[in-house]
Simulated scan of single mutants.
Amino acid sequence: MSEYQQLAKQGLWSNNPALVQLLGLCPLLAVTSTVTNALGLGLATLAVLMGSNLIVSLVRQWVPDEIRIPVFVMVIAALVTVIQLLMNAYVYGLYQALGIFIPLIVTNCAIIGRAEAYASKNPWQTSLFDGFAMGLGFTCVLVLLGAIREILGNGTLFAGAELLLGPWAASLKIELFQIDYPLLLAILPPGAFITMGFIIAAKNVIDKRQKMHAEQPQKSVERARVTAQ
């Protein structure tokens, strides 16, 4: 398996920042009431992760170890400010919906963690891909959680897509079933916490089954060896 394949597997599954490292839970639980909000925040986080990993990798040789963390935080804060201004200019409705959680991307431990653990020690090409893989894994979890909450809470999917993609995207809204009264447990943060627990549990079950399937051939070989002896 090549290094890029390993980075993709780490970011998307085995070391997913949301499912395994449990980082960035505050925005993860707060803004994923709809797919649109989840996708908007996920793409913003993805852009910051890729940008911070790239810049940190490029300047790592000139940053003394004593001040590397403050420098990394300043780089991340500058990128988040750029993303915030762009969202304010071009997707103002989504910018208002996400509110304080856009500038709070600066405090996302997944971003500073990747800058410190990987980008500060590796070339810019692999660091950029690492940021992409980790950001994509985080975004996928956000979208999955947002989809489950939106379906259970409102019976819809892609509601408010025009806030992210423009007026034409209003037609993307899918009404799966009609609800007279929204399910508040799914819409509010406690519902996100419960749903996230089920998602993590499902991942652990899948990992356990994969491990058992991987161990079966080895056990068969050992049994055959014992029988032959």
Rank of each mutant, 00 (worst) to 15 (best):
L144G: 13
E116I: 09
E150L: 05
V71D: 07
L142V: 00
Y92W: 15
T139M: 06
L98W: 11
R149Q: 09
V48E: 02
I69K: 11
V143G: 02
N122W: 04
A38E: 05
I105Y: 01
L54Q: 04
L145Q: 01
T156C: 15
A115Y: 05
V63S: 06
L43Q: 06
R68A: 14
M87L: 15
L85P: 06
T32M: 05
Q84K: 06
F72V: 10
V20R: 01
G51L: 06
R114V: 09
P70Y: 11
T34L: 07
L136S: 10
Y90P: 00
L46R: 04
E150M: 08
L39R: 01
P64C: 08
A18D: 05
F158C: 12
I67A: 05
V48W: 00
D130Q: 04
G113Y: 10
P103Y: 10
F72Y: 13
G155P: 06
G137A: 11
V75M: 12
N53T: 08
I105A: 10
E66M: 15
P64G: 04
V48T: 09
G93D: 15
R149H: 10
R149K: 06
D130Y: 05
T126Y: 08
Q21P: 06
V75I: 15
S33R: 03
C109S: 12
Q61H: 11
A97Q: 15
L85D: 13
V63F: 07
P123Q: 01
A117F: 11
D130T: 03
A115E: 10
P123K: 01
S127C: 06
V48S: 00
A119C: 08
T139R: 00
L28S: 02
A110R: 03
F101Y: 12
A89V: 15
L142E: 05
G131S: 02
V35L: 09
A159K: 04
L29K: 03
V20Y: 02
T32I: 00
F158H: 04
G135N: 01
I111L: 08
L43I: 13
L28V: 05
F158M: 14
V106M: 12
A38H: 08
V63C: 04
T34N: 06
L41C: 06
A159T: 10
A89Y: 15
F101I: 08
I148M: 07
I105K: 01
L19F: 04
A89S: 15
Y95I: 13
A119L: 07
L58Y: 03
Q61P: 08
G99I: 07
A159I: 09
T139Q: 02
P70E: 11
L142W: 02
L39Q: 03
M50A: 01
T45P: 00
Q21L: 13
G131Y: 03
L98E: 08
S33H: 07
V75E: 03
V80H: 08
R68Q: 12
T107M: 12
G113V: 11
Y92D: 15
I102C: 04
G51C: 09
Y118G: 10
T81N: 09
E116C: 06
I111V: 12
F138E: 03
A97M: 13
M87T: 10
N37L: 09
C109T: 11
I148V: 15
T34Q: 05
S120L: 09
V56G: 02
L94Y: 14
I105W: 04
